[in-house]
Each structure stands twice: as C-alpha cells, then as structure tokens.
Amino acid sequence: MSDEKALSGEKVMNNKIDSYKRRFLAQSAVITGAAALGGGLVLTRVVQARPASQAVSSKNRWGLLIDTRKCANDCDACVQACEMEHGWGRGSSDEQRSSPAQKAQWIRKVTLRDRTTGHETSLPMMCQHCAHPPCVDVCPTGASMKRDDGIVLVDKHRCIGCRYCMMACPYKARSFIHEDLHGQKTASPRGKGTVESCNLCVHRVDQGKIPACAEACPEKAILFGDLKDADSEIARRLASEPSTEIRGDLRLDLGVRYQNI
C-alpha cells in the first residue's frame, strides 16, 4: 500500500514540475538579488551559490588546506565554531551521561611532538574527506556516503549504528551517539544510535558559504575551496606550495591537506 502511495505521489510530483520551474525562477531572482545586496559578506562566499534545486556535481571537489604554522597551540576557535554550528560539545547541553570517551567530537586539536627534537606542531583534525573513503567501502547499508562533490557524510536515515565505519576510518574522525539528544540544530540533525562526523558543513557549502571552522579561524589557517577549479586559491596554492596528506601511504586521496607538519 505504501508503495502505491509513493508512486501516486511521484506521478503528481511530475505533473507539478512546471510549477517548480516557475518557483525556481522566482527563487533564483531572489537569491541573485540577495547576493548582490550581500556584497559585504564576500569573505564568507567563495562561489556563486548553486541553485537550491540543482544537484551537486563531480565538477567540484571541496577541500581544505590547513597551514599548521598559523595554527596556535592554545587556540581552538575552529573547534568551538564547529560545536556551535552543529550543536555538539560546548554548543549543546546534551550528552551529559556519556563519558568523555563516549562524547562526540567532530573536530579536535591534535598536538604532535617530534620525539627527538621536541618540536611541537598543532593542527585541527577532522574527517579528511577521502576520494576513496574506507568508511564508505565498509558500510553495509550505504549510509556512509560520498557526495558527487567529494563531501563524505553519514546519511543518518540509513545508518543502523553498526560502527564498522568507525573501525575502518584511519583518522578516528567519527563518533557514535550514545544517548538521546534533545537540543539539535535545525541544520544539523543528529541522534542516538547513529554515527556522525564532520560533513564539511554541507548545509553552508550548499548555500555558497564556507565551513564554520574556516570562517572562525582568526589566523585564516584553514582555506576552503574547490580542488578541481584551477583558478581557486586552494588549487593554486596546492599547485605551487608543498602540502601533506596524513597517512598518505594509504593512498586515499584526501580532500583535506596540511602544510608544514
């Protein structure tokens, strides 16, 4: 019965495409107007926003370039911004009963110390948005997925909470939700029994904005952009300056690259 309903729903929806098109034209006019007015916000907008009705495409590949020399040891502005944006950690009053080892962390500051010289490097660590993500390969239901534009995320509607992706991730980028949540953000649904991780702020990227961490960094150490657009700042810098992939030996072709590790 529910299949029939879904089918009839689809049929009617097809008939309504014309009305979508009219709406879309009106919407894009509004968006263009808003973009023109919002010229002052240019810093947070890297590209012309893709129309809301258009699917992401493999013509883009979003990524980050992180310059660790600009990353101060005692600064965690990026972490805090992520917490506020997605409603975890200090950005939420949930997860009170979970132990520290059970609480979710989408992004964390990692300190590396050279065992011989004692030199310390600080960097933010999150999902590396691999081109060949092990988490996607192992997920039995296809919940762990990579969008056409290279963003790796969990479709929580399909996640059964088996945690195989957490076993497979080389970067410990994923967290499991160990208890009921109540204070989620509208733009970042998350809940008990499913796995989650950095999604490169898909909801912001889809609106043409940059991820919250990149926006918050006081030193502009995190550069967001389209790795496939040769004219983008990130592509130009990656072409002209040295950069590193973490665990590059695994050949996962990461979307997040680091400098000066």
Partner: peptide
C-alpha cells in the same frame, strides 16, 4: 598511528 614517529596528544 596518524603521524608515525611523532608523539601525539589531543582531547580525543
């Protein structure tokens, strides 16, 4: 082993 050969610490 995220950074082989390095001593690593974090909140996670």
């Amino acid at each position: 082993q995220l950074f082989p050969g390095k001593a690593v610490s974090s909140s996670f």
